[in-house]
Write a protein that binds this DNA or RNA. Structure first.
Lengths: 166, 166
DNA sequence: GTGTACTGTCTTGACATCGAGATACATATC
DNA sequence: GATATGTATCTCGATGTCAAGACAGTACAC
């Protein structure tokens, strides 16, 4: 029951148990690890994208368009839902991506309030290269985990995620 | 093999498989879920802290001090390591927390380069209240997962996290 | 059709973060 | 004890994000 701590969260939980033995800190075992791992992943992603001169936020938008398939075109609203950012942020992102020549904006012919954003040739090439590089890195990060464990892990995470995505 | 998508990541993976059948996108099943779940958790935490008039970044610093135990005092360097932010960020955070009367700064008597930051009475009360509230919320978020699954999940996450925390 | 509520996008201002560098002090080596 | 290297903290400028609100256009009820 009193094993050696292996990661920062083990130490964190042990510290809380010493300080507040009256509280059930079990949820931290899962949720603090999710948060901390995400923070580390952000850094790893940043490094992977730097090889292709892309910022993480640029990659986020470009991949959303890439996944949409030909003609690689979505509305800002759809991009907002895909990336979980606010509308102000998305406007700003599209502005800068357009300026960098990676995306293009055009009026939506079916809704005069609307706009459609699409990948340029250059944007498509960049995102494909960066995505392949990201997958290589992520594959390495998961190398320590057998495939069956990865499946178990993703299934459990899905259970937690489903309520948010409904 | 062709189940219904249950969360956004299932849809994301399906979209990639349609667009890039040549790539092995399996790593996304785990790592995209970690990132997205962390993003949702950030929002939930923000809401939980708002009840106690605390920002997430304030909570991060205050809990690090709280966990340290009496006299609830750490150096900025120790706080940096605990919170994974840069030194410039931590200076700024301590400034504002001190201004809000939640922490106190004093020179380190043993190292004249150094500073020690400690919780005030008010800071201690606020962080204890906010932490209890957070645990309640996190407990609810995990309600859908039996304890044995939570244990499995945290063990798998620990495996991924250990290389970063070494 | 007219009024009302809703939707989609953009604008603005405030803010927390980062990275690079500056400064002061400490420690190790000779 | 002088020099060089390392450590702890802070300063500064740039940047990406958010929240709130503005504005144009759409949809629905009557």
């Amino acid at each position: 029951m009193n094993e050696e701590p292996q990661d920062e969260v083990d130490r964190l939980v042990a510290a809380w148990r010493a300080e507040r033995p009256d509280l059930d800190v079990e949820p931290l075992q899962v949720l603090s690890r999710v948060s901390r791992l995400a923070k580390h992943l952000d850094r790893a992603r940043r490094a992977a994208f730097a090889e292709h001169a892309l910022e993480p936020w640029e990659f986020d938008v470009l991949t959303a368009l890439r996944r949409a398939g030909k003609p690689y075109e979505l509305s800002p609203g759809a991009l907002i839902r895909a990336t979980l950012v606010t509308s102000g942020t998305m406007t700003n992102r599209i502005d800068r991506l357009a300026q960098a020549g990676l995306v293009r904006r055009r009026p939506d012919p079916e809704d005069r309030r609307g706009v459609l954003v699409s990948l340029t040739e250059s944007g498509l090439a960049r995102v494909d290269a960066a995505f392949a590089g990201l997958l290589r890195r992520e594959h390495d990060l998961l190398a320590g985990l057998p495939l069956t464990d990865q499946r178990t892990l993703s299934a459990l995470l899905r259970t937690l995620l489903t309520p948010f995505d409904s």
